[in-house]
């Protein structure tokens, strides 16, 4: 076990853990910051995404001994009150299904928008490598655009007007 002082969400936090402990487990088990999620442990899914000095980083692949004085930001520290534009957009557009991946998605998106405040569609797809098993990708794209103030084509929530009835369709499908 070794002692480390980490800079987490603007606070100094002391932990005593094995040096090879991934930051993910330090956050979840030692610091009770459980918004950062375990999905694969091999850097593939992105559920564990945090910011290290503002850069989106997979915390399952980041051992605690390498963190040093770097500023760690987790989903709990993205805003104090859920008011980050991405958090608001995610709620408004009802992006989540199970929701498990979404903290990681938001952290990845926050890093993207910091670098590139008005990303093009292709830039969003290129930057967002996190897995969403529920496949909410259409709303993830829309959430990023909403937060970035980019008009969303059509309606992210797929506005189709009133649900048609059989009678109203008889004309349409003839």
């Amino acid at each position: 076990m070794s002692k480390y002082t980490l800079q987490i969400n603007g606070q100094s936090r002391n932990v005593d853990v094995a040096p090879d402990t991934p930051l993910l487990w330090v956050l979840r088990d030692s610091l009770e910051l459980v918004g950062t999620k375990f999905g694969c442990g091999v850097g593939q899914c992105g559920a564990c995404t945090v910011h290290l000095n503002g850069v989106a980083t997979r915390s399952c692949m980041t051992t605690v001994s390498t963190v040093g004085r770097k500023q760690v930001t987790t989903i709990e520290g993205l805003s104090t009150d859920g008011s980050h534009p991405l958090q608001k957009a995610w709620c408004e557009l009802d992006v989540a299904q199970c929701g498990y991946c979404q903290a990681g998605q938001i952290m990845a998106a926050a890093a993207l928008l910091k670098e590139n405040p008005k990303p093009a569609d292709q830039e969003i797809d290129d930057a967002m490598t996190n897995l969403c098993r529920c496949a909410t990708y259409i709303r993830i794209r829309a959430g990023i655009k909403r937060a970035a103030g980019i008009p969303i084509e059509g309606d992210a929530m797929n506005s189709m007007g009133a649900v048609p009835t059989v009678a109203s369709l008889q004309e349409a499908v003839k």
């Binding site: 989903i75 993205l78 859920g82 958090q87 995610w90 709620c91 989540a96 979404q102 903290a103």
Partner: peptide, 8 residues
């Protein structure tokens, strides 16, 4: 649960 989800 959206507010809880987006704030971790």
């Amino acid at each position: 649960d959206n507010p809880k989800i987006v704030t971790g």
